Amino acid sequence: MDQQVALRRPSSEDIEVFYQNQSDTTACQMARFPARSESDFKTHWQRITQDSDNVISTIVVNGEVVGNIMSWLDGEKRLIGYWLGSQYWGKGYATKALKQFLQHFERPLHAYVHQDNLISQRVLEKVGFMPCAQMETEDGIDLMFCLA
């Protein structure tokens, strides 16, 4: 059965799913991004949803919230990021969501991915991103992917 991947505006009910997704130990290790406490996460979420430069969507598959996808400005660069619950990895949802999300942006776009996060690198490559730079971090190398 073909899974219907859709994007919509985040609702207050989605925040709990987003919090649980970012709390997943495996996901945090893969992304090399530490989980936030619940109060820190909610404060962060409130801040990013109020910034008019940020574009945020909930990823829904057959009516079920599976994650989120967003874009924000970092200086002159427009960055893209996404976070899905680990139980939804490897099913093509991130790729389908990213293809839909990218339709709303002018190029170039950028995304940072840790060198060991091969799954996320593959998602970016499937929609046309290419590695264009790298930088050393405390826990390895972050790759910058660009979509021209």
Rank of each mutant, 00 (worst) to 15 (best):
K42H: 10
K42N: 07
T43V: 07
W45Q: 00
W45S: 03
W45N: 02
W45R: 01
Q46M: 08
Q46Y: 05
R47K: 13
R47C: 08
R47S: 12
I48F: 09
I48V: 15
T49H: 14
T49R: 11
Q50R: 12
D51R: 14
D51I: 11
S52P: 11
N54S: 07
N54M: 12
N54Q: 10
V55C: 14
I56M: 10
T58M: 03
I59E: 01
I59Y: 03
I59M: 04
I59P: 02
V60W: 01
V60I: 13
V61D: 00
V61P: 04
N62E: 14
N62A: 11
N62I: 12
E64S: 08
E64M: 13
V65K: 00
V66L: 02
V66C: 01
V66N: 03
G67K: 04
W72E: 04
L73K: 12
D74M: 12
G75F: 10
G75E: 07
G75V: 09
E76I: 14
K77Q: 14
R78Y: 12
L79G: 10
L79P: 06
L79R: 15
L79N: 15
I80V: 15
G81W: 10
W83N: 12
L84W: 00
L84K: 06
L84I: 10
G85R: 00
G85K: 00
S86P: 04
S86K: 04
Y88L: 08
W89G: 01
W89I: 07
G90Y: 01
G92F: 01
Y93P: 01
Y93K: 05
A94P: 05
A94T: 06
A94K: 05
T95C: 05
T95W: 03
K96L: 02
K96A: 07
A97P: 13
K99D: 09
Q100I: 12
F101V: 13
F101K: 09
L102A: 11
L102N: 12
Q103F: 04
H104N: 15
H104Y: 14
H104T: 14
F105H: 13
E106F: 11
E106S: 15
R107P: 08
R107I: 11
R107T: 15
L109F: 13
L109S: 14
H110A: 12
H110G: 06
A111I: 13
A111M: 10
A111E: 03
Y112P: 01
Y112S: 08
V113I: 15
V113R: 07
H114T: 03
H114A: 02
H114Q: 01
H114P: 00
H114Y: 09
Q115T: 00
Q115R: 01
Q115N: 04
Q115I: 02
N117I: 00
N117L: 05
L118C: 02
I119D: 04
I119Y: 09
I119F: 00
S120L: 10
S120H: 07
Q121R: 08
Q121T: 07
Q121P: 07
Q121E: 07
R122V: 00
R122D: 03
L124W: 09
L124R: 06
L124V: 12
L124S: 07
L124Y: 04
E125H: 03
K126G: 04
F129L: 05
